[in-house]
Nucleic acid binder design. Structure first.
Lengths: 238, 238
DNA sequence: TCAAAAGTGTTGACGGTACACCCATGT
DNA sequence: ACATGGGTGTACCGTCAACACTTTTGA
């Protein structure tokens, strides 16, 4: 049985109409700093039981960005996060059912301030560290790979790493984050010098106490300062 | 009248199906170095008479990349060029007829070796310098802006500028190209030092003669050398 | 011989990297 | 007192930017 959905009144053109979905690669970190991705377990075929990126079909009355934000909220409860278009995947046989074109987005989330609800549709959701991934449905492994590459590239010259941390963080936490994403150790003194010299961090008179060592000073990312500097052709580097 | 086109047999899902197109931003240069874009004049509404990016609908049996290459060949005769996905545009009212999602690509072309045929469909095509653009149909102005930004960014850290030049070129031609794309003058001695030090250029024993000044040495881009270096974690810079 | 572009080196400033020790805190 | 992570400065080196004159060629 064919169901024709929402054909607009003006539609008089003999053009193909594929299905279009948005999928979201959602990165988060927890302590100790491990990069993780949010996956959802499929309940229905194809790939029933396999894990997949959260996502869904794009409505005719919503933009791609809106669709991505809606799906994100519906399936994980996340709102107001850093979200950016990644790439559009459109090979012919991505989905065994019919031709599906997928616009992939990626999002950065800090787990402490945006707790992720297991999704509303009663399918399982879970965080997976990048080195312990289950087999993924469709070509989602490919999408994830591309998202990781983008994250690694972008984090060097745009201050997006802060999205993954709680609003207040220590310099060591920030450094650990960079080390996990870039996959290489960084020199502590050089890292601090560089990041502080940029003038993007507000240093607070608050310290992380209750640990079995010297209390660490907390910092906040100073968005206004960043926007001011960016206008004068300032470039964030490493 | 509704025309339902190529509904696949497996199609039993009640999901919206927008139209999907690919559009191509094709950059070229001519002498003296001016960056130009290829545009096509529309014959039919909407936006009849206005200029637009070449492009067209994506078939259900071809990938997005294939569709972009096909449209490029059909409308301009160009083949085997540097082509890369740019961004996907999906706001709701981009096209007054119906919901259309457009996957934009950009291409770099050297005019001397790939002469562009006025397209086959008997509509006019033409090159426009970036500072003398006609009003563009749909949101093609937006797409073009994004393509320019991408080109400016990418040319600094990937050796794609060579795609715009003939196979053999002088260092001054290369420098002029970078100056136009980046929109700033570069120091001649520093530019030569840097670009030659990378070891990506094969220096030839051929000279550009017949000009009213000293003959300039010609160079070729050495693709093999680049691929070798890239594997060892080499990074092209400016 | 003139005009027009090709070609070529040096220096100083700056930023990046390498590197080791003392301090504060809780157990 | 000890274990754990917090916090700090310097010296060397390489890279980038600034800068001007001589050479070749055709008109």
């Amino acid at each position: 049985m064919f169901v024709i959905h929402q054909i607009p009144m003006l539609y008089t053109y003999d053009y193909p109409h594929p299905a279009v979905t948005v999928d979201c690669v959602i990165f988060g970190v927890d302590q100790p700093t491990v990069l993780q991705v949010l996956l959802i377990q499929r309940k229905i075929p194809p790939f029933a039981g396999a894990w997949a990126l959260p996502g869904g079909f794009v409505g005719l009355d919503e933009s791609l960005d809106e669709a991505a934000r809606r799906e994100l909220a519906e399936e994980t409860g996340l709102k107001d996060v850093f979200l950016e278009q990644l790439y559009t995947f459109g090979t012919v046989d991505r989905d065994p059912r019919e031709r599906v074109i997928t616009v992939a987005y990626y999002a950065l989330v800090n787990l402490t301030e945006h707790p992720v609800q297991a999704d509303t549709d009663a399918s399982d959701a879970g965080w997976f560290p990048l080195d312990r991934l289950p087999p993924l449905a469709f070509d989602h492994g490919l999408i994830l790979e591309r998202a990781i590459a983008r994250l690694k590239g972008k984090i060097r010259y745009e201050p997006i790493g802060f999205e993954l941390l709680p609003r207040r963080f220590t310099l060591t936490e920030l450094q650990k984050l960079y080390e996990t994403i870039l996959g290489q150790p960084l020199d502590k003194r050089n890292f601090r010098k560089k990041i502080l010299a940029m003038g993007l961090l507000r240093s607070l008179e608050i310290f992380r106490t209750g640990v079995a060592n010297r209390a660490a000073r907390l910092y906040e990312f100073d968005l206004e300062a960043y926007q001011r500097l960016k206008q004068d052709g300032f470039s964030f580097e490493l």
